[in-house]
Amino acid sequence: MVFREPETGWWEAQARATVTVAAIREGDGAWHPEMVLSHLAEIAGAEALLVVFGSNARSAQHALVADLRARLPRHEIVAIGVRHRHGDLLRDAATVEGLLDAGGVPVVITPVSAMHDVTAEIASYLRADRVLRVLRTLAGAELRQVWSRSRAPSLS
């Protein structure tokens, strides 16, 4: 009996698109919000995007989700409240993964104090390709990469 391995291109086609996690603190989102939203919309048009929004105020959460929905009308923007509880975080990460796989843009809303831990754990679970944060600049605000997954060398 002979078993054939699928062609290399088949394995590459099975992999999920590039996954980017954008971690935004409530105060960062208020710093030139048009620029931040423009960057998020550009990323969502090219790859899978997860937004982790650290906020303690409900009004800021609703504004971010509403603004994303207005800028990305062809994407399903889904807000998910997440606290940093180890027992529940795995289930929440699986929910986020399902939304990404369906082409949605999940917005994980978590308290500011838990934002870094939630971002790290969900990004790890998703095997995200990169994590971005808002950087304040003289010109306004931009998203800068703070972490990226190193690619394993190919076996060619």
Rank of each mutant, 00 (worst) to 15 (best):
H84W: 12
S124F: 09
L50W: 07
D101K: 15
T8E: 14
S156P: 03
I24H: 00
L132E: 02
V131E: 09
D88G: 09
H75C: 08
P33D: 09
T110Q: 03
L100A: 02
E12G: 10
A123Y: 07
E97P: 08
H62N: 14
P33Q: 08
P73A: 02
N56Q: 13
E5P: 01
T20V: 14
D92S: 12
A152T: 13
R58E: 11
D67S: 15
D28W: 04
A15N: 09
P106E: 03
A128E: 05
R136N: 05
G103M: 14
V21K: 01
F53Y: 11
I24V: 11
T20I: 14
I24C: 07
F53P: 00
A41S: 05
P6K: 09
M1Q: 08
A41V: 04
H39E: 10
A44Y: 03
W11S: 08
H62V: 15
T119H: 00
H32T: 10
L143G: 04
E7G: 03
E47N: 06
D88K: 11
I80L: 12
A123R: 00
G9R: 11
T137E: 09
R4A: 07
L50A: 09
M35I: 00
Y125M: 02
Q14R: 10
I24Y: 00
E42Y: 01
L72I: 02
Q145W: 08
A120T: 06
H62F: 13
